[in-house]
Design a protein around this nucleic acid. Structure first.
Lengths: 128, 128
DNA sequence: TCAAACAGGGATAAATTTATCCTTATTGCA
DNA sequence: TGCAATAAGGATAAATTTATCCCTGTTTGA
């Protein structure tokens, strides 16, 4: 496991939130678990763009941050289920508001995101 | 400027939001601008942990994503002001809910964040 | 008997992000 | 004169995150 060399910033709420939510797939991992996708193979199918190794790593981090619980059923073939902790559930309204915001603005978002793949842009205003 | 090699994932709202909000300092940059810190030197003072170069880069990205506007006043010494666009302003309630969540849970958050700096943890449940 | 599903980790590489250091240019102030 | 403040970018290094590939072991189904 990778150990960070630079200490985290913990100056305000947004810092704290960033520490546990920062990760390419974390928003959606939490959301899909919330939706009832409990097994890692289900999550992988939901997020085919995500490498399964990375999914596991981020699941571990979420577990370590007490947002999800990992339950192992000692059967063969192995069965493991991920669920939100009570703490993790308190995040759902927040994720929901993020998702809702993005869906309301999805056209503009897609535009600006896709734009910087090629052409340059400059919204700079000069003078006034 | 760095050009990404892997295409963005744009499958759902949370993806879209991630694309524009992903960045170590972006939550707070937006928040501090919202609070009236318009100049980059002010932002640097607010976030001394952030390298000023990186702050500039992230400001450019936010600008490119139409969340902030950069206004240059052609005076000497140079004066540049960042403000939220109308689009950027729609994010404020979202950021507010993130920050509020984290502040409500700041004790637990600090605990779990600081824990993984050293000791290991394992919340795994076996069987049931 | 062979492949697939299941969960996950080791080793390693690639991609990306963040950080450091230095440079430009102008004005006001000590 | 010389330094601070102002904004920001180039070159480069370091840190971190994400991705690839392969391997373990067991069971069910073709």
């Amino acid at each position: 496991m990778y150990i960070n060399k630079t200490p985290p910033s913990l100056n305000c709420g947004l810092d704290l939130a960033g520490e546990v939510l920062y990760g390419k797939w974390k928003f959606r991992i939490l959301w899909f678990i919330h939706q009832g996708n409990k097994r890692s193979s289900e999550l992988q199918r939901k997020m085919p763009d995500a490498n399964s190794r990375v999914l596991n790593i981020q699941l571990r981090e979420l577990e370590c941050h007490e947002l999800v619980i990992r339950t192992i059923y000692p059967v063969m073939p192995p069965k493991v289920e991920y669920t939100l902790t009570d703490f993790g559930k308190t995040l759902i309204p927040v994720l929901s508001s993020i998702g809702k915001w993005a869906e309301e603005h999805q056209n503009q978002l897609k535009e600006v995101i896709l734009r910087d793949l090629s052409g340059s842009s400059d919204n700079t205003h000069i003078d006034k």
